[in-house]
Each structure stands twice: as C-alpha cells, then as structure tokens.
Computed example of a mutant assay.
Amino acid sequence: MPKKGNRKRLKFRVGDVCSESVTVADYANADPAVVKTGRVKKAVVNAVEKEVKLLCGLEASQGAVQEVLSSAISVTADSLESSDDLDQEEDGENKRKAARKKKNKRRKESIDGGEYPVDIWLVLSSYIRPEDVCRFSLICRNAWTVTCTAAFWSRLYRRHYHMDVDLPCRLQPDSIDRMCCLRARVIRSLFHLYEPFRLRVSKIPALPESTPTTLLNSKCLLFWVRKVSGTRPEAMWEFNFKFLKQVPGKHCSATSLHMPRQYEEVHTNPDSGCYLLQVTTLNFIFTPVVMGMTLTLFTINVSTDMRHHRVRLVFQDSPLQRGRKRGDQGGTQVVLDPVHSVKLMDWWHPQYPSSPYI
C-alpha cells in the first residue's frame, strides 16, 4: 500500500527505458494523482511494450505483446483502484482541513476588522484606573479619541473626588466645569485625591540624582524670589527658576498629534514640559536677570561652612551644542551660598505653582 507523504511521481521516457527502470513495484506504488481516471499514460504503455519485446524476443509476434501488455495494465489498474479509495479518503480529509482553515481565517478577519463605536469605548473608560489611561488610549484610535474628550476627564475626576481632601481653589469641583486646561487640572487633582499617586510623590526625592542632566539646555521662562518663614528666627529666601525642557525636533502641542480640533482646549497646558527648581537660602542673595537664557551648567557642592550646600548655575544666550564642553567660562553665573534645601518639581507636582490660566 502506498504510504502517505512518501509517494513520488514517475517520469518515463521511451529512449531512457532499460531492464532495471520499469518494475511492477513502480506501478503498484504509482501516484494516483497522476492518472485520476485509472488509465495508463501513453508514454508508460510504449515503455512497457518496448521492454516486453526486448525481454521475450517477440518483436514479430504482436499478439503475444498485447497479451503481456494487457496483464501489466490490469495489475496497474488494480493498484490504481485500491489507491483511488485511499486518495478519496485523503481528499476528504484535505477538504475538511481546508474548510477549517478557511473558517478560522474568516473568524480572524472578523475579529481584526471589527471596529467598535466610540460610545462603547466611552463606557469602558469608566472602569479603568488613572495609571492605565495611557495603555487604554493605545488600544485603538477610538479609545484614544475617548481620552481626548471632556466627558472622560470629568468622570475620572468625579470618580475619585472626596470632600475630606483639602484641594486648592483652582482644583475644586467648580473649576471642572471649565473646558480650558481640563486635563491638566484633573491630573493635578489626582495627585491630591488618588492614593497611589500620593504615595508616588512621597517617594520622589527632593532632588533626584539626574537633576543636572535633566535641566541641561533648559530655557528659563520665569524667575522670582520670595521671602518665607522657617524654623530659624530670621526669615529664609526662596529662589524659583521655571525651566522649559527643550527637545530639538519634537513638539508636544495638540496640533502636532493631530488631535480633534474640538478637544484642543481640553488638552491645553501652558506648563507642559516645565520644571520648577526651588532653592531656599538662609539669607537674601543678589542675582542677575536670567529670564530667557539657557542653563548650560548646574552644580551642587558643599558650602564653605561645611554644613550647607552651594549651588552654581551658568546661563548662556544659546543652547549648548552637542559634542562641546560645558560652558564653565563666560555667560551669566548665579551662585547661591549657603543653601538650606533644593527641590525639583514637575508641572503635576502638588507644590508646583500653576499658571494663572489653570
């Protein structure tokens, strides 16, 4: 019986037939796919006829040749009939596999090609956590569109709002009704209301180790000094530098992200990409005006009294070019000594002074 997957197609040429090339086994194991009707090819008939003439010496006796040929053909036909039954079973199995594969393909296309309306994603967004908003928006375009709507951010705020939490006036429920900067206000509110975000802020060090690298080539947007009261009899002074991190070739505006125009007001955030460097000194120190300049050097050393810190900032008119050394020489220097504390805050930090528009 022919084994599945081990059958070979036989090719006969009349000129290449010899006594060892045509055997009964070749016909018994012949591929039924070659001759579907059970008929033997003409090339095979000619090869068998020539072989019989050479073996039996019956070139003059045509009747004997026909007799031998008919017996060979009958053996071949019997083998083909038995092989046809097996071939029919294999064809049935192949058809079932093909139908199953086609059905799975249609099912996969229906899953991949299906697109749920925005209303479905809006309902699902009511059950996601604040830390999963980014993952949710990356599912598909409709999910991202939902995270751009004012309804999404309003529901997120009301879901985590508690009257027991002391919120600033700009983050009270009355301010949520305003469309402008709604997303920024809700994110800042969550760092007061949502416990995982509150714990995250408490674990952030006052001055991360990456601060000098983070503020390098940042533009000083605003600078102010204010007098604060502390544990000392004398008042301390707080120097605030508001920096904007400049990333060449990248813009974080809503227009560059192709956001729907009706939601641009919701995502407006004047403090996006901003940091606040807050340096508290024990006394007032005169500092030059550095607004509009770029920070090219930031160092923190030990003060001369060995009990406090010394902060040195160097500002240039233009950003530091890649591959060049830091601008220690020239530019405008700001030296604060002695320093009581140094803090670096992102725009969403609870102690970050927000813009008057938010």
Rank of each mutant, 00 (worst) to 15 (best):
R9Q: 10
C18A: 13
S21Q: 06
S21D: 06
A25W: 10
A25L: 07
D26G: 14
A30G: 02
D31H: 08
D31M: 09
A33F: 10
V35H: 06
K42W: 07
A43M: 12
A43Y: 04
V45A: 11
N46V: 12
N46S: 15
E51D: 13
V52C: 04
L54Y: 02
L55Q: 13
G57N: 06
G57V: 02
Q62H: 15
G63S: 15
E67Y: 13
L69G: 00
S70K: 15
T76W: 05
A77M: 14
S79H: 01
S79K: 00
D84K: 09
L86E: 03
Q88G: 06
E90Y: 11
E93A: 01
N94Q: 12
R96P: 01
K97I: 12
A98Y: 07
R100V: 11
I111D: 09
G114C: 15
G114E: 12
D119T: 12
I120N: 02
R129W: 01
V133P: 03
C134I: 14
F136T: 07
I139V: 14
C140Y: 05
N142A: 07
T145Y: 09
V146N: 04
T147G: 02
A151Y: 04
Y157N: 01
R158W: 12
R158D: 12
H160P: 02
H160K: 04
Y161N: 01
D164L: 10
D164Q: 11
D166N: 05
D166G: 01
C169W: 14
I176N: 04
D177A: 15
M179P: 09
M179R: 13
R183Y: 10
R185D: 08
R185S: 03
R185L: 04
F191Y: 15
F191A: 03
H192E: 02
L193H: 06
R200V: 06
V201A: 08
I204E: 15
P205A: 04
E209G: 08
P212V: 01
P212Q: 10
L215Y: 08
K219F: 05
K219H: 00
L222M: 08
W224I: 11
R226T: 10
W237F: 04
E238W: 03
E238G: 05
N240D: 03
K245Q: 11
K245L: 10
K245I: 05
K245N: 07
P248E: 13
C252P: 11
H258E: 14
E264M: 13
V266Q: 04
T268Q: 12
D271R: 06
C274W: 08
I285A: 00
T287M: 00
V290L: 07
M291A: 12
M291W: 04
G292N: 03
T294K: 07
L297I: 11
L297K: 09
F298S: 00
S303R: 02
D305A: 10
M306L: 14
R307W: 00
V314N: 08
S318A: 15
P319T: 00
L320A: 09
R322H: 13
K325T: 01
K325M: 09
G327T: 14
D328E: 11
G331L: 05
Q333S: 08
V334L: 08
D337R: 05
W347G: 05
W347C: 01
P353G: 09
S354Y: 10
